[in-house]
Nucleic acid binder design. Structure first.
Lengths: 116, 116
DNA sequence: TCAACACCTGAACAACTGCTCATATATTAG
DNA sequence: CTAATATATGAGCAGTTGTTCAGGTGTTGA
């Protein structure tokens, strides 16, 4: 599905090579979706907090300094993306990372922030 | 700037610990911005192509199957984020990755897509 | 010289985002 | 039981995004 049509360029042969190994449409969609989960400061903070500990909505709201409603909406989104999971404990709902990729991406991102 | 106010939770001591090492507001902004560069399928494809070779706008447009104008707009955005750099050769403008973090993040992302 | 090519850019527009507010349910402390 | 707490969710809204379209500049091949 990546490149059904043969691709060639007289001037830029590198383009033909790139065409061979370019990500498929499906993979670019999936990659973009994963990155989108972290493409917002609020979600970065939520996800980073969850990378440190399993936490209920109210604590996340206090940590990230945002309304519980806003946090709940973001968590709903992240849950739809299968990035976080939840379990109910009494009147709390504890959220945790459900995707180790996220933890890795945050780590890589933070590592780079450190020396740049 | 991360947590100016002391933070504590009786019920969830883990939250207090998380507060200690939670990303600062500035870092979460910067992280989100980096991820935002890859939070769109078109940009993923552009960046992945540029991770393989330095390419002009017209070739990128053919590779990702999108209008030259759209590519140019996206490249302008990526350049503003200092993710790509450009150099002019004749009537072509060659773009290349200007941020190794991006290459790494794509690699991590692709690696995870592979086994999931 | 000049038409074709390569690229850029602003306007416009629909689609999407991230928040607040109001309101709902469920659980528990008193 | 009742009030307070914890969470969820839909509507609404301002701001952002990604594209197309129309036009612009600069370069080059014939």
């Amino acid at each position: 599905m990546a490149q059904v049509l043969p691709y060639s360029s007289v001037e830029f042969p590198a383009a033909a090579l790139a065409a061979q190994s370019l990500v498929t449409a499906t993979d670019s969609e999936r990659l973009a979706q994963t990155f989108k989960a972290m493409a917002d400061p609020t979600r970065v903070r939520i996800l980073h907090a969850l990378a440190l500990a399993e936490l209920p909505v109210c604590e996340l709201a206090r940590l990230v300094q945002i309304s519980e409603s806003a946090v709940s909406h973001q968590l709903g989104l992240l849950r739809a993306l299968r990035v976080v999971r939840r379990r109910k404990i009494g009147r709390h709902v504890l959220y945790a990372l459900d995707d180790d990729h996220i933890r890795d991406l945050i780590d890589v991102g933070l590592a780079h922030l450190a020396h740049s």
